[in-house]
């Protein structure tokens, strides 16, 4: 299909959560600069696949690779940006949008050093990109669901990753912002960022998607052009309802 190198790769991976098998012999590739979408019904194993790729869940069999290296030995985490699936971006203690977005760069500064001018500039650029400049001093908990999801996206982007992994990033984003989310994705792709997005349905990014992988009960049911998506996902058109 392409001779671009793979940035994310899974080779016959099986995963158990507790005693229950969630993934069966999954092969997966994300090529450099590509925008791929991982689709599937609830509990089809999408989030588990992503977490296994990122080394958060161990594989029982098979191997996940990041930039060609086994995930257990991977060291260049600054290349990876991760937007987890969260009901809320708020946490136990109040924090402002700017504080949370800046925390995405924590791993980039040494344990004993402070944030510098380049960190502040990257955060400012990211807030601009995801349209959160006006609320940067507001506590995250006071924002709408859609704004909170943009905070999570901005936290990942502030570290300027080469690969972005998004787990249902637009579940509670309203329509106008889905269009601006698509524009953000377009900007990132033009900069050469590789993107893997987990989604229930495609929405506004459909025009940008190069490849779709569909999971069904932990197995890959489709891997290729996103042409048959409408058929495959006719019964998942409830955008915004996904958990």
């Amino acid at each position: 299909m392409t001779d671009r190198p793979a940035v994310l790769e899974m080779d016959r991976v099986s995963v158990f959560l507790g005693h229950q098998q969630v993934l069966w012999d999954v092969d997966f590739l994300l090529y450099r600069g590509e925008f791929a979408v991982l689709l599937g019904a609830n509990a089809s194993g999408k989030t588990t696949l992503v977490k296994t790729l990122l080394g958060l869940i161990p594989a029982a069999a098979g191997q996940a690779y990041l930039f060609g290296e086994p995930v257990e030995r991977f060291k260049h985490w600054a290349k990876i940006g991760y937007v987890p699936q969260r009901v809320t971006a708020a946490s136990g203690v109040p924090a402002t949008v700017e504080e949370v977005v800046t925390s995405g760069r924590a791993a980039r500064v040494g344990l004993l050093s402070r944030y510098g001018a380049s960190d502040r500039e990257a955060v400012a650029r990211t807030l601009e990109l995801v349209d959160l400049v006006e609320v940067k001093a507001s506590p995250v908990a006071s924002l709408s669901g859609g704004q909170q999801q943009r905070v999570l996206i901005a936290r990942a982007l502030s570290a300027e990753p080469d690969v972005l992994v998004l787990d249902e990033p637009v579940a509670s984003v309203d329509l106008p912002h889905q269009e601006s989310f698509a524009e953000t994705i377009e900007v990132l792709l033009s900069k050469g960022t590789s993107i893997l997005m987990v989604a229930h349905s495609l929405g506004a990014v459909q025009r940008l998607v190069e490849r779709a992988v569909v999971l069904e009960r932990g197995r890959v049911a489709h891997d290729g052009a996103p042409v048959d998506l409408k058929l495959e996902h006719a019964h998942h058109s409830d955008f915004g309802q996904s958990a």
Partner: peptide, 16 residues
């Protein structure tokens, strides 16, 4: 900075 990032979101901190 680092303690905040971890306390705020342990999974994301690990991936970072």
């Amino acid at each position: 900075k680092h303690l905040f990032a971890i306390a705020y979101d342990e999974e994301v901190a690990r991936v970072s």
